[in-house]
Design a protein around this nucleic acid. Sequence first.
DNA 1: CACATACCTGCAAACGTTTGCAAGTATCTC
DNA 2: GAGATACTTGCAAACGTTTGCAGGTATGTG
Lengths: 331, 331
Amino acid sequence: MAVTIRDVARVSGVHVSTVSRTLSAAHLVSPDTRARVLAAADALGYRPNRAARALSTSRTGNLGLIVADIANPFFPPLVKSAQAQARERDYHVFVADTDERPEVEEELVRSMAKQVDGVLLVAPRLANRVIAELSRELPLVVVNRRLRGVPGVLMDVGSGARQALDHLLGLGHREIALATGPHTAWTSREIERAAEGLAAERGVLLQRIGPNPPTEEGGRSAAEEVAASGASAVLAHNDLMAFGLVRQAAGLGLSVPGDLSVVGVDNSHVAQYCSPALTTVEMPVSAAGRGAVDLLLQAVGAGDPPGTVSLETGLVVRESTAPPRGVGAVD
Amino acid sequence: MAVTIRDVARVSGVHVSTVSRTLSAAHLVSPDTRARVLAAADALGYRPNRAARALSTSRTGNLGLIVADIANPFFPPLVKSAQAQARERDYHVFVADTDERPEVEEELVRSMAKQVDGVLLVAPRLANRVIAELSRELPLVVVNRRLRGVPGVLMDVGSGARQALDHLLGLGHREIALATGPHTAWTSREIERAAEGLAAERGVLLQRIGPNPPTEEGGRSAAEEVAASGASAVLAHNDLMAFGLVRQAAGLGLSVPGDLSVVGVDNSHVAQYCSPALTTVEMPVSAAGRGAVDLLLQAVGAGDPPGTVSLETGLVVRESTAPPRGVGAVD
DNA sequence: CACATACCTGCAAACGTTTGCAAGTATCTC
DNA sequence: GAGATACTTGCAAACGTTTGCAGGTATGTG
């Protein structure tokens, strides 16, 4: 029923192999046959069957993109840019959501393996060992995860976290809490590492809260502990948790930023609209999506694993941070 | 290199066709050979090649999901639920973003056609004629578009819009603007139709503003016109535009809801966090995603086009609406 | 015991491409 | 004008599955 290469061959009076070459190695066919073939293909509305092509070339023209939670506002811009970049290179993208479950993540990679040329793991929750194992079976690129032997794009959230902490210290805060996300997330560990490093330098002790799920709900849970800790400021694992924190803090009678300063991470679209507008670490999400696709295609093409790309982050100061009660700004 | 059905056959000492049957028509093979085959498959870590399977069955096990703008917060929950539902049925999902460009939309469907069993068009911007044409080539399901002959899931935004307008009228507003989105979007026309219908009933004239792109930027543009129109309330095409409106209104010296009441549509995640929290029409987005996948798979399987499913919407009143200046609430 | 029936398995073609190989023709060089 | 060279094309195998057909063995029936 569908029009195949055979139909085009029949109509243009050449062998199928000539049609094939016209379409994928044009320089191997004479100008006039090429013209005839293209005319026929056009007239018939021929589109190559990518599955069939995949079978003989073992190149599918597809990529997999696996994220923990599409509904988390951190991901959509990344999905968007990755998908756009892929399409520009004539690739299609499978998108899958793991619901934050590592075992689903692994199963997804495995089930996609035969159907894609490579997979992008964004903020994977999988154990290093498993990722390394998978990357032996097909080209893999990780985003926000550092793993030797596996190319990756990192958003240097550590430097952003340090800026955030520096900002809070500058405002005069001394009792600062760190609301951590899943310990399987590289960003979470990275934020802890960077923040605690800087805190140590400055002779301040950070209260570590959590881990909690990287969701609004997780932020609410964290709020109780933060309140109990008596901290005057908190650095949340991401914007979603920060929103939950702000919300629940209000429920506990704490105003933000009056009683509690809150800093998020992601600078998701939402951060600028919420009330109070959220001070947050900006992540170069779109660039990461594009870069990851480029890296992946490079790995697919060349076979030699390119290295790790690191992207800058920065702090966006808005309204959710202020000096603690009874203290004027210090810097 | 990859393990194929042939390897499994060799190891288990049967013909490939027996392996194939074991995996896709288990009742046709004796229990003990089945056991042997499964053991071998398991030992080798065999995974069927879906592309090859597609070639002989002409069933790919893939679906396409095409949206106008993944970064628009309306879409992610839909993508998430659709993808989850598909995965439960052992389908993989291609996700593509059209950047609001109809011609990209068409091209995407065509380029996916051979690789999927059906496509979900979410809030398509394409002309009816083109959609109808495409649906003759492969199973199609539309979300938020009414089109005879093409199964679809509709979120009855009209009733939500009427509730919203009723709410505004109840507050005492008489000068109400309608900030419309792309006229190619069904929801946009539906909102206009419903709101203008109700307005006529109540003897009020709506100021139609736009169309503007359904983005924050579009909302900003609309704000100028709304301010010039002297309206005391505005119903925006979606939440994103509503945010832009609120923002730009502030820039023009209008406070929300004091000088201007704003209602959005979508009840996206953001609406509850922004300031002021947005009064908005709630869309059953997750249910729509699941329902659309079910409909599509039904169409793929049975071949008989199922009908149209309509889902309820409702109004969520928050803080962005209030009586107009100098008027107490009427109801 | 002969025959029909049910069950299980192998054979081989088909799905729509790509691609190495060989054969044919035209062009070039001396 | 002969041989070498460069182009262009067709042939057929291969990619990994599925599936209609036929053959074979066991089981059941009278």
